[in-house]
């Protein structure tokens, strides 16, 4: 069946709402407007305003309300328009959602799912373009997912809802129009493992989310050059499935990490560190990273493009680790 990433997400929500009456969606403009990225379009008509719940502009209150409802037997899906606005709810996400289970000595799990858009590339300037999923991946108690394919857009939500603990799902804004074929019976997927999206033997390119397509494009470019790159899609940013990328590095002996987050103190740093800790003697070259330039994302197209990882910069980094300099 032909579908898009957006439709796959919608189908996942619809499916979950049908499977479990405790599930409901709440957030800014998820109802009448249809979702700021049109993900929930049509769901209000199908499920009504109790379960497709428009909220006021109160990120902290409606995320906190999602936590409270989850504590009290419901299975809320909270949509935050973008990760940039999630900062207004950071208190609830970190100090409550991620913390209550531990602080209560195991008494209060928070089975909450929060979806939000992340990433740059649409000339929306700094306050709408940041990639902060790496920050969230820093926090014990959260599971952080980044669907990069139609299968994952369709399949990650249900297992996330079944998880007894809070799960954050990051949808890159550049992916909503991604289209392609999805099996008619596509359903829940594993949310614990990274996936090898392209097999190769010369270098391991490790990425996730909105950078996956760029990395695959870079791999095609490298192939034309005789470099056979393996591409790993992390899928789950916390807890990280290190085994998959470490095993890959053990046979390619080279690694490039591609991350739309900033470089300093980042997810890419974590991955590079794990490779250094666990597979140092397997490496034939230092690990390289391709990250977003350390600036607030600028508006002008050429500046925004220059700030972000691109197929050319990814391929250049890979050539460097394969051929040296």
């Amino acid at each position: 069946m032909k579908t898009t990433y957006r439709e796959a997400l919608r189908e996942a929500i619809r499916d979950a709402m049908r499977r479990d009456e405790r599930v409901f969606l709440m957030g800014e403009d998820v109802g009448s407007y249809g979702g700021c990225y049109a993900v929930s379009l049509g769901l209000l008509e199908e499920f009504g305003p109790e379960r497709i719940r428009d909220t006021p502009l109160s990120e902290s209150a409606f995320v906190g309300a999602g936590i409270g409802a989850a504590l009290n037997g419901m299975r809320p899906i909270v949509e935050i328009m973008t990760v940039n606005f999630s900062l207004l709810a950071l208190d609830q996400i970190l100090n409550n959602a991620a913390t209550l289970l531990h602080m209560s000595g195991g008494q209060f799990p928070v089975p909450l799912v929060i979806r939000m858009t992340t990433g740059a590339g649409r000339q929306l300037a700094a306050q709408h373009s940041h990639s902060l999923e790496g920050w969230y991946a820093h926090i014990p108690g959260l599971r952080v997912l980044a669907p990069a394919t139609l299968e994952d857009a369709r399949g990650m939500l249900w297992p996330a809802l079944c998880d007894p603990d809070p799960v954050l799902i990051f949808e890159h804004n550049g992916l909503y129009n991604l289209s392609g074929d999805l099996a008619d019976d596509a359903g829940p997927v594993d949310i614990t493992r990274a996936a090898i999206r392209r097999q190769g033997k010369d270098v391991t390119l490790i990425t996730y989310g909105g950078s996956l397509a760029k990395t695959l494009a870079a791999a095609d470019d490298l192939a034309a050059d005789g470099i056979d790159a393996e591409v790993i899609d992390l899928r789950t940013l916390r807890p990280l499935d290190s085994d998959t990328f470490l095993e890959s590095v053990r046979h390619t002996h080279r690694a490039v990490v591609v991350d739309e987050g900033w470089r300093t103190g980042s997810l890419s740093a974590e991955i590079a560190a794990r490779i250094a800790e666990e597979a140092f003697y397997e490496l034939d070259a230092p690990v390289r990273r391709v990250c977003t330039a350390e600036v607030p994302i600028p508006y002008a197209k050429h500046l925004e493009e220059a700030a972000l990882p691109q197929p050319a910069s990814i391929a250049a980094a890979a050539r460097e680790v394969v051929r040296g300099g």
Binding site: S60, A61, F62, V63, G64, A65, G66, I67, G68, A69, A70, L71, N72, M74, P76, Q92, N96
Partner: peptide, 8 residues
């Protein structure tokens, strides 16, 4: 906010 959600 958590109390609001419990009540919800």
């Amino acid at each position: 906010p958590v109390a609001v959600g419990l009540a919800l």
